[in-house]
Design a binder for these strands. Structure first.
Lengths: 341, 341
DNA sequence: GTCAAATGAGAAAACGTTTTCTCATCGAGA
DNA sequence: TCTCGATGAGAAAACGTTTTCTCATTTGAC
């Protein structure tokens, strides 16, 4: 029943229902005045032929394309994918689709993508990255559509979302303390990362100003090296490590095992990021702080939608709470459990 | 200079250049007849005001939206992201943007996404997955636009792309043999995976029908267990392991190290997938077969474009060659090198 | 029985392009 | 001087919707 050249148009629908185009449109949108019988007839025919309006034509008129762009420079997608999933989830049942544009760190490529999206009349752009204190390689401050920043630095007066790393760190440390750990060391990444400073600041605030914090890099190797350093030094050994990400935690656990130190009996470990593919696969499975990036994506999606609809949104940075996903590496809760603040 | 309500239209451009709308359009598209001076004037004004045509309006008329959809059920994006990168790279400079739709394994969600894309008049759909012998949870055989399958099973008469796993396996094994290894064992995933059968088949074809193949799961744990099994059995030990993926390889390397067996001196290891974040971070860095998913994505992108333009494309499965990325775990080539067939 | 208001439905304009016609004007050949 | 083809440029239709306007008919009150 479908015309050979493409989809059925409202013109076909109107003809089949025996009404004019305008009446057909009004019937479908529940607007205008007409007999109830007419309205139902049009709807029935529409259902029968599977009529779906051409979004391009609608967009041309309404100036809404029900399309947004997601810009990212995160190649591995470790942060972008959960964000994307959240955005998509929040928007799909409102009929909004998402253009994904991976721009590496190339400003020219970024410009090409942004131009292409603007040509396609996106209703808004969500900028996302792999680092909360760096900007994308392209300036979005004067694109003619709303912009929301998620997990990347926005400009002043921008709307941005990031996780509350300080709260996440507190969550981890308080959990360790509550389970009786006395000598907690924080092994984390390079100090020039904003999140490293946030987390270590919160760590010190809870544990005490003299608390040991070791800065390094985001690698397994650093996790091993840190453990080697700690355990080859003289004096009392830590009974818990709070690691800056799951890879560091992984390295630490491996190094501890090689030294015959038991996790979690002798040393409890908590990681950060809850990167399932690392954390859940480890022996023992890793307790880790989850930044809930999907929720962050959801919020960003809802916000860009609100902006696109012209609703006012207060500029500023919104921080979203982290969750602690408890697994066996910290000695409590054998079945996987979850703890919010 | 930009009007308050939105972007400049060709109407504004025409007015500023002192010509009619039709002349403006023809000038920009290098069609129609007009004085060279007029054409240049229009183009100059267009450049000055940064005019860009509304793609929705163009699409309405041309029936091309310069938009395609990428459908995936790969949550982690381990396979989808490289494919996506390739697709995007191939299409961006032709002005095509990509809708990314993650549908998990939910047919209803898939239908919602497909409908949304069709409403938006995508020129085609690329279906991609995490497993080459499984279909997406939604039937695309009668969508009214071209479909290309990449790294997922398409129906009969479909156009699909996948990597040549047999060739990849041969590449690995021949490399090991060429470097003098005599007793190679293949440790891989579950036998019901097509790629497992392809790879193990090729492995046996090269090494000999009696060659040892151990099927298990895609985890580090299985890599460890396999090594434990091999080394606790009596008789001669392998001098090389060809692992079905990088995680198995990782587990194997760890288990070997714990037994005091040196990699690559005593046992050479080759993985599969070349998942950078695992392979390059390992100690020693892992030699691994790379399926070149980005190139696969590029090909899929170019193909869907050809189909969208009405060019004929032969249906069938196209296999793309794998590359061997040589790192230190197989004892040759200290600097990272690459080998094609 | 008259008139105003309410009701049902279609005509037409609008969105921003591209494309096909149509129409002057100009120069050249007779 | 007349006509013919080329040239330059605009008018209008088309794409598929939504929305505003208009108009005829019916209903209700007097």
């Amino acid at each position: 029943m479908r015309g050979k050249g493409g989809r059925q148009t409202i013109r076909d629908l109107a003809a089949m229902a025996g009404v004019s185009i305008s009446t057909a449109s009004k019937a479908l949108n529940d607007t205008g005045r007409m007999g109830e019988e007419t309205r139902q007839r049009v709807k029935r025919v529409a259902r029968e032929i599977g009529f779906r309006p051409n979004a391009l034509a609608q967009g041309l008129l309404s100036k809404r394309s029900f399309t947004i762009g997601l810009l990212t420079n995160d190649t591995y997608g470790r942060f972008t994918l959960p964000v994307m999933a959240g955005v998509s989830e929040a928007l799909v049942d409102r009929g909004v689709s998402v253009f994904l544009c991976a721009i590496e760190d190339d400003p020219a490529l970024g410009q090409v993508h942004v131009d292409a999206m603007l040509d396609k009349q996106v209703d808004g752009i969500i900028a996302t990255g792999k680092r909360v204190d760096r900007r994308l390689p392209i300036d979005l401050s004067d694109v003619p559509v709303p912009v929301v920043y998620a997990f990347t630095e926005g400009g002043p007066d921008s709307v941005s979302f990031r996780s509350d790393d300080a709260q996440g760190a507190r969550l981890a440390v308080e959990w360790l303390k509550a389970s009786g750990r006395q000598r907690i060391v924080h092994v984390t990444g390079p100090q020039d990362f904003f999140s490293v400073r946030e987390r270590s600041g919160a760590f010190r605030a809870v544990v005490g100003e003299g608390a040991a914090v070791l800065f390094g890099e985001w690698s397994e190797t650093w996790g091993r090296d840190a453990v080697d350093g700690l355990w080859s030094a003289s004096g009392e050994k830590p009974d818990a490590l709070f690691c800056g990400n799951d890879q560091i935690a992984r390295g630490a656990v491996d190094a501890l095992r090689e030294r015959g130190i038991r996790v979690p009996e002798d040393v409890a470990i908590v990681g950060f990021d809850n990167w399932e593919i690392v954390a859940a696969q480890m022996r023992p499975p890793l307790t880790s702080v989850d930044m809930d990036l999907k929720e962050l994506g959801r919020q960003a999606g809802l916000t860009i939608l609100a902006l696109a609809e012209g609703q006012p949104v207060e500029p500023g940075v919104r921080t979203l709470p982290c969750r602690l996903v408890v697994r066996q590496s910290c000695g409590v809760g054998s079945p996987e459990t979850e703890k919010r603040r």
